[in-house]
Amino acid sequence: MSRLGASQKPVIPEMEETLAYPRRNGEPVFDAPWQSRAFGMVVSLHTEGKYPWNDFKKLLIDSIAGGSCPDAPEDTPDYYYHWVAAFSRLLVEKGILTEVELVDRQHEFLSGRRQQVY
């Protein structure tokens, strides 16, 4: 069950300058569904108290400083690629997931052995 009650609207953390969420005309922009899922997961775990926002932010800054993400196509903005990289690292650092189970599961989706997320 979601722990976000109807009366309690979740607060989306503010992100500024190089970390600012991509927007078009003031509205948030997701270029693909995976980007919104990644966004939702990172904020969801934070609002549920799994980590302080700054822990994620720090890894995001590191990832962005480290240059472009290997998975990102050259001509695409790689903002959410960095989100996924930073989030993966954070989960492993916090002991929520292991690198091995994450990579294994990713291969299951890549090979088609697993197809449904729901």
Partner: peptide, 22 residues
Amino acid sequence: IEARVRALESLLVEKNITTHDA
């Protein structure tokens, strides 16, 4: 990247860390 994000979501939901609804 899609496979990575699906891996993350499916694992986190399985472990009751979050929900699809949240």
